[in-house]
Every structure is written in structure tokens, then in C-alpha cells.
Design a protein around this nucleic acid. Structure first.
Length: 285
DNA sequence: GTCCATGTTCTTTA
DNA sequence: CTAAAGAACATGGA
């Protein structure tokens, strides 16, 4: 569920409430959400103070006062919320970190998320691509030029650009008027520049509205985001396009729903190929 | 019962 | 090697 804007909103709301707090105890209700499995999280955390809460891609990175770090990934349905001491623990609350006068709850029904212990290891992110908000158009162009895959699939590839998910990939392509099936290496320099701007614009707008809540997403205070009301294409199949009023189309790409406006995001090469084969068909028959 | 879902990773197939 | 497609993970809502 959570993409960059949602994760950043959790980080912001979390940091203001737990930085400086000392961990009293840790309850790990199920160990299968922890990587590596054999790590003694309780021993590592108890007595430590939270130094900082930051974001890298879709990961929430927590640094302790002894320099050790771990990160939480929310997967599809994860929540990281700050609750009062001894608050009830709803179903699927897998880990509770207790502070002096509050506690941090990690809940995740689908369990695609989890907690990863990093220790003092500086790496563990060499497989992640650059951050979209600070990525330059030239750097993006260089990365896109190395693959023939459809641009929508490439935007979801965290090793190419890290932090976008299904919602914001669709929204950024609409914003830059690029068809999701266009080959990444065939975008013009101008199109990549537009796409790069669109990505930043969409992410900033979503951040301003504290992310999109489709179902499970909440920030650390339990508040929903509101950006879902401003989606231009995502989950709007058949509804009128914001720009041209034509119907939004939905296709499946890489097993994921992809939403776009066929009129505002034309696929020129594809259209020409179609016209050509139609012409050949007419001439031959 | 069916299908679908904001993510990631692995396997199979071409 | 590249890539697409499918399945897997687990749960709940429509």
C-alpha cells in the first residue's frame, strides 16, 4: 500500500513522537516478520534511545543511540502507529516497542511487510535505485536508456528508481502524457524531462495531502491520507478523464492494474503500426 | 464461492 | 543474457 508519500508521512509523524525516547521492552508476537529470523531484537533494542527516524525508498529506517539501525517495510497493509501505554493490541499486531509513556505498534494483516535488522552495516541498500525527489533528468534518462521494457514496468522497478508504486507510477505517466506501454529506451529527452518533473510534482502534491488511503494506510497518529480524492487515473476505470473527459482505460501490465487516458497518453508508434497493418490488409484483400 | 488489492521475490517460459 | 508472465506470500473486502 504505502509508496513514497505514505512512507514519508509515517516517518514525519513518527519522528516527532519517538525520537529521544528510550525503549523499555519489546514484544515480538511473531518472529516470522523479522529478518534475519535469529536476530535477538529484544536484546538489541532494550535500553536504547531512538536517535532518528528517516526514509530510504519505501523503508522506514530507525537509528539507535548505539549506532545500530533497523528498518520497517509496510508491505501492502502494514501500519506503524504510536499508541498510549498498555493500549489494546488489535488483531495482526506483530510487534510492540514500549517507551516510558507510549508504545510503537507494528500491525500488518497480510504480512508482506516486516522488520529488517541492519546493525551498523552501512550497506544493505546497494540494490536500491536513486530517490525520485532528488533525481536529475539526465540521470533518469541514462537509467531508462538501458532497458527495452515498458515504461510503467520500469517505474515500478525499485532498482531503477526507488519509491514509486502502482498509484504514483500511473499518476506520473498521466501527468507527463506518456503511454504506459512505451518502451523506456525510446522516450525522447524531452519526454524524460517531462516525466521527471511529473514524478516530482505528483509526489509533492501527494505529500501535501499526507498520502493516499485506499484501505489500510494510516500515519503514525492513526490519521488517513486524502490524496486518493485527487487521483487523476488510478482506480478510475471508465470515469471521465480530468483533461479531455474521455473514459479512463485499465489494462493489466506485469500483473498489475494500469490506468491511463488513451487520448491524452497516445502511443504514436503503436498507432502507426496498427494503421499500417490495416492498410496492408486492405491492399491484399 | 469469486475477484481484487498501495509490494516483493522467485520460477517458468520464450 | 533479457523479459514477460505467473505464482507465491496472507488476509479481508466487495
Amino acid at each position: 500500500m504505502p509508496e513514497l508519500p505514505e512512507v514519508q508521512t509515517v516517518v514525519d509523524t513518527l519522528a516527532s513522537r519517538i525520537v529521544g525516547c528510550t525503549i523499555q521492552s519489546v514484544d515480538l508476537a511473531r518472529t516470522d516478520i523479522l529478518t534475519p529470523q535469529d536476530c535477538d531484537l529484544c536484546a538489541h533494542l532494550t535500553g536504547r534511545r531512538v536517535e532518528s527516524v528517516t526514509r530510504r525508498a519505501k523503508r522506514i529506517v530507525i537509528t539507535l543511540d548505539d549506532g545500530n539501525r533497523f528498518y520497517v517495510h509496510l508491505g501492502m497493509s502494514g501500519r506503524l502507529t504510536v499508541e498510549l501505554s498498555d493500549a489494546p493490541r488489535p488483531k495482526h499486531t506483530h510487534c510492540v516497542i514500549r517507551f516510558e509513556s507510549s508504545e510503537l505498534h507494528f500491525a500488518d494483516p497480510r504480512r508482506f511487510g516486516g522488520i529488517w535488522w541492519l546493525g551498523k552495516d552501512a550497506s544493505n541498500e546497494e540494490e536500491l535505485g536513486p530517490e525520485p525527489l532528488t533525481l536529475g533528468a539526465r540521470a533518469l534518462a541514462a537509467r531508462l536508456s538501458r532497458t527495452t521494457r515498458a515504461i510503467k514496468n520500469v517505474l515500478l522497478d525499485q532498482t531503477v528508481i526507488a519509491g514509486l508504486g502502482n498509484i504514483y507510477a500511473d499518476e506520473a505517466l498521466f501527468e507527463s502524457r506518456i503511454h504506459p506501454l512505451r518502451r523506456a529506451d525510446r522516450l525522447t529527452n524531452d519526454e524524460v524531462t517531462q516525466l521527471n518533473r511529473a514524478i516530482k510534482r505528483v509526489l509533492r502534491r501527494a505529500l501535501k495531502h499526507k498520502g493516499s488511503t485506499l484501505r489500510d494506510y494510516r500515519d503514525a497518529n492513526g490519521e488517513s491520507g486524502t490524496f486518493q480524492k485527487l487521483h487523476r487515473v488510478y482506480d478510475r476505470e471508465g470515469q471521465p478523464c480530468w483533461r479531455c473527459k474521455g473514459p479512463i482505460k485499465r489494462i493489466v501490465l506485469g500483473g498489475r492494474s494500469t490506468h491511463f487516458c488513451p487520448r491524452c497518453q497516445p502511443h504514436i508508434a503503436r498507432r502507426m503500426r496498427r494503421a499500417k497493418s490495416k492498410l496492408i490488409h486492405q491492399l491484399c484483400w
